[in-house]
Design a protein around this nucleic acid. Structure first.
Length: 522
RNA sequence: GUCCCCAUCGUCUAGUCAGGUCCAGGACACCGGCCUUUCACGCCGGCAACACCGGUUCAAAUCCGGUUGGGGACGCCA
């Protein structure tokens, strides 16, 4: 049924009535990381999808740190997650809330369950449970909880309580016929038989409520309308449906995103993949934040047409829960690949932004990189600003990441740069006479009245002719002497970018390159 | 083992809900060409997939069933 507008404003409905008497409310989504590691690309993608949907619908994104497992939660991890989100540009409207600050809510919900008979005390020891599970596994049978304590007699219960035995609280899954289910925005109708759901633990023996319960209580309190999370939560969702019911709360919209696997189809994790799956890795390796978001969003979602690059506004406009894929995608990282240090598509998308984004937007990112590398000069923001922008423009098409500005592009910003060994062998070592020709050409450059594109090229070609070699010999040698590289922009553009003084100085020093480590003669 | 989810080029994917316009489109990667003082960029071209079997239908990548394969969950983790 199409939404029926109840308030009209300049031809555009602002509020909608989806059912009689019910006005569609603001969407509220959340990103609830557990601070037990860094922000990895799976978590970042979850955050991104939630953020996109919140922004698209004009709703709110809530950041909630799920730190109920105090033993494993760390301050560094919380900082890492927040830094990661900030770097990506994923902002939130409320929070960060900390789950531990709401333990009263969780405990009172648990107490209410016990009072209502929706949960019961279970005295089974960890050892017994573990033994049963192993036995079941060995017999290839059912590993779910068998309900031993659900049917404890009044006398047994009283006796165990008197004895002061530790107990956990288990949710009493209704013994009903039929199924329970929900309409997943990605997967469609999902149903599960009641008899498949065992009595799960909601409160630890030390009195601390567990994830399944806390998560639902928090979502209800935070008035969450849409839960967008990984498919690994699907069985949790079924159990949480029961919790919503027991708490008398309406269930939110669920959307289960496909997982991201490695090339061997295993779930990506810090343990097995290391830094390569950490968001921080991409920041440290010179990725453009938005480019990385653009890569992430395509891992499990597509707009339905051939577009692959989106501005922030375009992506928010194009995004929808329904177009999220059902099947898992693979993070195509092959360890030890000499050419691609991460998924080639991620690099390709970064390159695209690097060479097409407005130079004024790229400049601050390059500034940051040069600053980190100790190559920044404040003049680049002042009287040399137009030079700075022109130089970035000149060199960026050959670069892959922001790091390249301080490595491959170092010679443009500093006299302290390395000569690439391969470049030396090919462009210099093969023709030792360049030690004479280049300084000579440098003297001509020094003396010429007009240090221009056309004139510098004319003199270089004349020098080659004089020496009886092809122009490329001289030109490529100059490239290596001036930039340390084998390849680069058009040579005479480089000359002008570097400036006459630097060009002359470096070319005159050519012979030194041939004898870098020659010991002093006595 | 039980339950759940998934299945199109090497990878990300479009097409599947409303079967024909798909001997399957795009991107990345790879290969070739053009451009060129180098290397890129750019442009042009190429390689490459509907997991399998059966059914429904005039017609199936698309609907149905099964098989196989992959993944997830089965914690006093989140």
């Amino acid at each position: 049924m199409p939404a029926r507008p109840i308030v009209k404003e300049t031809g555009r409905p602002k509020y909608y009535q989806t059912h009689p008497g019910i006005i569609m409310q603001e969407t509220r989504l959340r990103f609830p990381p557990s601070p037990t590691g860094y922000l990895h690309i799976g978590g970042a993608r979850t955050a991104l999808y939630n953020w996109l949907y919140a922004r698209k619908t004009g709703g709110k994104l809530i950041l909630r740190i799920e730190d109920t497992d105090v033993d494993r939660s760390t301050r560094e991890s919380i900082d890492g997650i927040i830094d990661g989100l900030t770097w990506l540009g994923i902002d939130w409207d409320e929070g960060p809330y900390f789950q531990t600050e709401f333990s009263d809510d969780h405990r009172s919900a648990a107490a209410r369950f016990l009072a209502d008979g929706a949960a019961y005390k279970c005295f089974c020891s960890k050892e017994d449970l573990e033994a049963k599970r192993e036995a079941a596994l060995a017999a290839k049978g059912d590993v779910r909880y068998d309900g031993t304590c659900r049917t404890l007699s009044r006398e047994d219960l009283a006796a165990k309580e008197r004895a002061g035995l530790p107990y956990v609280l288990r949710f009493k899954t209704p013994h009903r016929e039929g199924t329970i289910g929900y309409d997943d925005k990605v997967l469609g109708r999902i149903e599960s038989n009641y008899r498949e759901i065992d009595d799960f633990v909601v409160v630890r023996s030390n009195g601390a409520p567990l994830y399944l319960l806390c998560n639902v209580v928090d979502d209800i309190r935070d008035r969450i309308t849409h839960v967008v999370r990984g498919q690994d939560h699907m069985t949790n969702t079924i159990k949480q449906l029961l919790l919503y019911e027991a708490l008398g709360a309406p269930i939110p919209v669920f959307a289960h995103m496909p997982l991201t696997l490695d090339t061997k189809k295993a779930k990506i994790s810090k343990r097995s993949h290391g830094e390569i799956v950490a968001v921080q890795f991409y920041r440290d390796h010179g990725f453009i934040p938005w480019a990385f978001n653009n890569f992430l969003v395509l891992l499990g979602w597509s707009p339905g047409d051939d577009r692959e690059f989106f501005s922030r506004e375009e992506l928010i406009e194009a995004f929808s829960l329904e177009r999220i894929n059902k099947s898992a995608s693979i993070f195509n990282y092959r360890k030890g690949d000499p050419k691609f240090f991460t998924d080639p598509k991620a690099i390709a998308i970064n390159e695209h932004y690097l060479r097409t984004m407005p130079i004024e937007e790229l400049a601050p990112l390059v500034k940051e990189e040069l600053t980190t590398a100790g190559l920044w000069d404040n003049a680049y923001d002042a009287d040399r600003h137009s030079w700075f922008l022109a130089t970035i423009e000149l060199i960026r098409s050959r670069f892959h990441t922001l790091k390249d500005f301080s490595s491959l592009g170092r010679a443009y910003f500093s006299d302290d740069f390395q000569i690439d060994e391969k470049a030396f062998r090919k462009n210099l070592a093969a023709t030792p006479d360049l030690q004479l020709w280049l300084p000579e050409l440098a003297r001509e450059y020094q003396a010429m009245p007009d240090f221009s594109l056309a004139e510098t090229e004319r003199l270089a070609r004349a020098a080659a002719e004089r020496a009886g070699v092809k122009p490329g010999i001289v030109i490529n040698a100059m490239r290596t002497v001036l930039t340390g590289q084998l390849a680069g922009p058009s040579m005479f553009d480089i000359l002008l970018a570097l400036g006459r003084e630097t060009v002359v100085k470096r070319m005159q020093a050519t012979p030194e390159l041939y004898h870098p480590f020659q010991p002093q003669q006595p």
